[in-house]
Design a protein around this nucleic acid. Structure first.
Length: 407
DNA sequence: CACCGTCAAGTCGCA
DNA sequence: TGCGACTTGACGGTG
């Protein structure tokens, strides 16, 4: 009997393997940062070069995703500076038509699911008419990005409900009203709403969904901080959220609290052990895709994706990348991992990342850090200029570890 | 060259 | 009533 049940659970595991995604930026591609400008510097020439640069950042991110078998990511709203403002008079859609078409082909050929996430300033339910108009323009901009990059039903615009203004019921009714009467079918085809960490709970967004049929994105950390439906088991709540997707594959958010920071602040990295525990409690029986919201972006994607799709080759690459980080934290962890990878032995994903994740709790170890810089310097001294060499030796002598990271 | 305050966007919550 | 926090790169001014 027990065996049968475990066996069935194992089958669910096979069947419900989530795509794992990360938000907006990739910290390991170059050029990495999206550029923008101030209002006073907006002109067509400037915008042209900024967008050209940003599309290159996006293409590099897509290439990274293809190479690393990543099937989901969030496109940054910063792609087009002032993309929803009338101050941007460049016809960027036509100007970069060929680039968009090229990127769209890459995304679709590799079956990558995309999403966009307008920020905290896009408020559809404001009592201020102008704020609402700007929010609608911003949704049009985001829908245009989807249309240009991947105009499929599973591409989503994730939005928060907005403000409360002293009366939550009125505020929710205003959202419903704007949704039903002001949004185009094209926006509605992609728009989904998420519970937030202060104002609108899962129960609130489910209510809005019941009036509008808008699907709901469940965010675990926001639900933990701003709970609702507390008498219901979590699986019942999840089932209610799943029903709002009407058979489409849902997208959920997952994040972890940063220790010692403001409530709701996202952690630097995903602790894989905690992820696995939460995944089995919350997401396990649901056929969903999971977007990670975390500071180290694609690196946590690699970590979580290895749990679902382990590969010895990838783990070895991961070990190579984390090597100096481990060395700078703990000589013991470094030796343990070397032992783990000895003789091309098979490495267990969870054990590997447990050693890496546990390092973040350690205090700064300046001796180990200085030792690491000596190792790294062993590689760099061949390429370094005289000036860089002087800087390095001066900083090492003074044990100025922080300054060394900067250089 | 390093560092700091301000700018964009809208809302909430605390003096 | 007004200002800090949230977010993040740009950019001007100061030392």
């Amino acid at each position: 009997m027990l065996f049968n049940r475990l066996d069935r659970l194992g089958n669910y595991m096979e069947e419900y393997k989530p795509n794992i995604g990360y938000a907006s930026m990739n910290i390991d591609v170059e050029p990495q940062k999206y550029k923008t400008c101030r209002k006073e510097n907006i002109n067509n020439d400037n915008l042209y070069h900024l967008i050209q640069h940003n599309l290159k950042v996006l293409e590099n991110t897509i290439d990274y995703n293809i190479k690393n078998n990543n099937k989901m990511f969030r496109v940054s709203s910063s792609l087009i500076p002032f993309g929803s403002s009338e101050l941007n008079t460049l016809n960027w859609e036509d100007t970069f038509k060929d680039v968009f078409s090229h990127l769209k082909n890459k995304i679709e050929a590799n079956e990558i699911r995309i999403s966009v996430h307008p920020g905290q300033y896009t408020v559809l339910n404001s009592p201020n008419k102008e704020v609402v108009e700007n929010a609608i323009l911003d949704l049009k901009y985001h829908a245009k990005l989807i249309q240009l990059l991947s105009p499929q039903n599973n591409s989503k615009i994730i939005l928060h409900v907005g403000g409360v203004y002293g009366n939550k019921e009125d505020a929710m009714n205003r959202f419903v009203d704007v949704y039903l009467n002001r949004l185009s079918d094209e926006i509605k085809a992609h728009l989904v709403i998420e519970n937030d960490d202060r104002l609108f709970t899962v129960a609130d967004v489910l209510w809005i969904s019941s009036k509008t049929k808008v699907p709901v994105v469940f965010d675990n950390l926001h639900h933990e901080i701003n709970p609702s439906l507390e008498n219901e088991p979590i699986q019942i709540i999840i089932n209610k959220v799943l029903e709002t997707w009407h058979g489409e594959k849902p997208k959920f958010h997952y994040s972890q609290q940063a220790q010692g920071k403001r409530i709701g602040a996202h952690s630097d990295t995903i602790d894989l052990g905690k992820f696995i525990k939460d995944y089995h409690e919350i997401y396990y029986s649901a056929n969903v895709d999971i977007m990670l919201e975390v500071k180290d972006k694609n690196r946590s994607f690699m970590k979580v994706n290895q749990y679902f799709n382990p590969s010895q080759t990838v783990l070895e690459q991961e070990w190579a990348r984390y090597k100096y980080y481990v060395m700078s934290k703990s000589q013991k962890a470094y030796n343990d991992l070397r032992f783990m990878f000895r003789n091309n032995g098979k490495v267990d994903v969870r054990s590997f990342y447990k050693i890496i994740d546990d390092l973040s709790d350690l205090d700064i170890n300046e001796k180990a850090e200085a030792n690491t810089f000596s190792h790294v310097w062993g590689y760099f001294k061949r390429f370094a200029t005289e000036k860089e060499k002087e800087t390095y030796l001066r900083l090492l002598e003074n044990q100025s570890i922080d300054a060394m990271y900067r250089h």
